[in-house]
């Protein structure tokens, strides 16, 4: 017993040391991951620039070469020089990069507006849509997942488990059209002529969220099932913990690891899906911007949009990466203390 009385005193500082060491390690880990994330965005920029440069044709050339426009050779050269098109691709890339770093993304070839201004006008609408959709998707997936475990097995449980497949196999535009028909036209809950209103945004977000939530819910339910089959779940139950508490205290956290991973992956779905959803609901967001830029071969806008989505992707996955060690202590890389 004397050993027991003595041990806490010397043990305490070593524990603090260990905690400090863990925190330091987490710091270097976070820095390294952030650096990698920035590198990915840079590479995405370069790659997209080169690919777009390799594709023949751009609106300027099309306009200049149009015989009806009647530009003189001198004027053509001036216009090209203004857009920097007369220099080698690599120099163009370096120039564009140095400007991009300072936040200047160039001028649209189609509208002659600064790309940053165009993006700034489009982003709020898309951000509202995508964020709301993501939150809705997470909420739906959480409800489905927990219900699959907490409801007594039987018909209700089977119904819950079949919902994700139904959600997933319903096309995005169909959900959107049905929602517009039912909520806007029949129930009059929102007006379709005001696409940025709260009601319309919610309806659009729900359209986007349903198929996305299905993918998250499928992974979440599977992860919960797997955790429920682990020894520790059975042992906690045998210790007398009520089944619902076993789910909330023991199954939830281990199941979040794969679920968080899939959230990062389906983000592409949210971004891609926003294009269709914006079209259905008549919203003027990044999706619409990209659509027009593609039609007009508007390279600076496309470049900015692609880099923007790469940035969002990388950021979200960075957050998720930084999240893992918080969820699972085994990923914190502490030393063994046995």
């Amino acid at each position: 017993m004397s050993a027991a009385a003595l041990s806490p005193a010397p043990a305490a500082p070593t524990r603090r040391d260990a905690t400090a060491r863990t925190a330091r390690r987490y710091g270097t880990f976070a820095l390294r991951r952030t650096g990698q994330a920035l590198l990915v965005v840079l590479l995405a920029y370069v790659l997209v620039f080169l690919v777009l440069a390799a594709i023949p044709g751009d609106p300027i050339s099309a306009q200049l070469e149009n015989p009806q426009a009647g530009y003189t050779e001198e004027e053509k050269a001036q216009i090209r020089a203004f857009h920097g098109l007369d220099r080698p691709v690599l120099i163009q890339l370096l120039l564009a990069l140095s400007q991009a770093v300072t936040g200047q993304l160039g001028t649209s070839l189609a509208t002659s507006q600064p790309v940053t201004a165009m993006l700034a006008a489009a982003i709020p609408s898309t951000l509202a849509l995508a964020l709301t959709a993501l939150l809705l998707a997470l909420a739906i997936a959480a409800v489905l997942g927990l219900a699959s475990r907490l409801l007594p097995t039987g018909r209700a449980g089977a119904l819950i488990r079949s919902l994700p497949a139904v959600f997933l196999s319903t096309p995005n535009f169909l959900i959107g059209l049905v929602l517009i028909q039912v909520l806007a036209v029949q129930a009059g809950l929102f007006s379709i002529v005001e696409p940025e209103s709260i009601g319309a945004t919610l309806a659009a977000a729900l359209t986007l969220a349903i198929p996305v939530s299905a993918q998250i819910a499928q992974v979440f339910i599977t992860a919960l099932d797997e955790a429920a089959g682990q020894d520790f779940a059975e042992v906690a139950l045998a210790r007398g913990l009520p089944p619902a508490q076993v789910v909330l205290r023991h199954l939830l956290r281990p199941s979040l690891l794969p679920t968080v991973t899939i959230v990062g992956l389906v983000l592409g779905e949210v971004l891609g899906g926003s294009l269709i959803t914006e079209a259905i609901f008549g919203r003027a967001g990044v999706g619409t911007l990209v659509q027009k830029a593609v039609a007009a071969q508007d390279v600076p806008v496309l470049l900015a949009a692609v880099v923007l989505s790469a940035l969002v992707f990388v950021l979200v996955n960075l957050v998720i990466d930084l999240f893992y060690p918080l969820l699972d202590p085994r990923l914190r890389g502490t030393e063994e203390t046995r």
């Binding site: 682990q230 020894d231 520790f232 059975e234 042992v235 906690a236 139950l237 045998a238 210790r239 007398g240 913990l241 009520p242 205290r249 023991h250 956290r253 281990p254 969820l327 699972d328 202590p329 085994r330």
Partner: peptide, 25 residues
């Protein structure tokens, strides 16, 4: 039956390495 679990009937499991939740202290 719930009050009997743990309080009257206890379990010592087979694989201690898998019988505690790995993500909780």
């Amino acid at each position: 039956f719930l009050p009997l679990r743990g309080r009257v009937l206890g379990l010592v499991p087979q694989d201690p390495g898998a019988s505690l939740n790995p993500v909780r202290s």
